[in-house]
Design a protein around this nucleic acid. Sequence first.
DNA 1: GTGTCTGCAAACAGTTTGCACTTCT
DNA 2: AGAAGTGCAAACTGTTTGCAGACAC
Lengths: 145, 145
Amino acid sequence: MKTESDAFREFLVKKGMRVTPEREEILAEVFAEHEHFDVEELILRLRQKGKRASRASVYRTLALLVESGLVQEVFYEDGHMHYEHIYGHEHHCHLRCLKCRKIVEFRNGAVEEAEKRIGGEHNFEVTGHRLEILGFCPDCREKKK
Amino acid sequence: MKTESDAFREFLVKKGMRVTPEREEILAEVFAEHEHFDVEELILRLRQKGKRASRASVYRTLALLVESGLVQEVFYEDGHMHYEHIYGHEHHCHLRCLKCRKIVEFRNGAVEEAEKRIGGEHNFEVTGHRLEILGFCPDCREKKK
DNA sequence: GTGTCTGCAAACAGTTTGCACTTCT
DNA sequence: AGAAGTGCAAACTGTTTGCAGACAC
């Protein structure tokens, strides 16, 4: 079975780029936890494990991971982008509370289907999608009254 | 019939805020064209019409428009946010080409339905959603070969 | 060996903010 | 009159970039 590490190596080699310890460590950390993350959190986690990858390398590597399809930009909030790894994981969408910012993940077959149909209608080659449903969570709903 | 201008006034009054010429001009310009826009474009359009609203006021007013639900943040790209007005318009989603960045709008009943169902399942009060389908448009698909 | 990558720090761009002045109510 | 809004420019923050030294191939 092909791991994300294999997939990334393959991607790099195909582009004539090098496999470096920094790139591998960043990749490993991105896949170490199954949560949304932002650049700051990622750097913090790397530091805590004694990895020295610089901020610049993290940004540069993240761009490669997105380009390779291993990672997706999920949403932009609080002035910066949030990411999640997607390789080897079933796709899911997000339900977001506009007040407390809680995020609930959910899966939805209807969207996958719509994705294919709509792609076909416009002759697009579809690679993925991003769906967010916005509203107020049970707690915040209650508090609004 | 209630116009977006009425709706915005109502929102402002309810918050104890003032109705100013700057806010009205910015609102009018936001609804003057039915296209996605970013802050720079909006300011340019205002300038071309001789309106003097400052950059700061545009940012401040845009935040109010988003809060009031008249405008939605659509996606973050090229280092800044893109918006669209939604009041009085049927909701639509976006099909985006990852290469040439072309955007096709489409409507989709299945998503509206899923939105309600999923909101219900998690006891969320749903106010809207945002769906982007990503891929390659017919032209870019061709060129990749 | 050579061309790519890294880390650093400086540069950048979009956005926010403090403040003096203006304006709405 | 008094509170709220505006414009300006400076500050801020996330991200990108130029460059010299390090390193994968």
